[in-house]
């Protein structure tokens, strides 16, 4: 790792972050396109949640993490407070790992 690498990664990431707001200002998007952008963010977040639940790098993970996220999902669907959802998933994963599950 060098400063050049850090700065290139930082500049590229910042450009990607700034591009959305800049584009929004330059062009007036039709209503349908605005709704598509909202849906696109939902799809990307859902995909991010699914891959970070099931996959580490490019390998499938063991059963512990998906099971713990499922517990969190059930709590969230039952309208448990956010903190309960987060802690419920973490505690489930920690307990399953203590029990020796991968």
């Amino acid at each position: 790792m060098t400063w050049a690498a850090v700065l290139l990664l930082a500049a590229g990431t910042y450009a990607l972050r700034l591009a959305g707001p800049m584009l929004r200002r330059r062009i007036t998007l039709p209503e349908a396109a605005v709704r598509y952008c909202g849906l696109g963010a939902v799809v990307l977040l859902a995909a991010f949640i699914a891959t970070s639940t099931m996959i580490d790098g490019t390998r499938l993970v063991g059963p512990t993490r998906p099971a713990a996220v499922a517990v969190g999902a059930i709590l969230a669907l039952r309208r448990a407070p956010f903190i309960v959802v987060v802690c419920g998933a973490a505690v489930t994963a920690a307990v399953l790992r203590l029990a020796g599950l991968p």
Binding site: R65, V85, A90
Partner: peptide, 14 residues
Amino acid sequence: GLDAAFPAGLLALL
């Protein structure tokens, strides 16, 4: 269990 806490929290928000 933090690896499970993150996807669960994001899911609750989504």
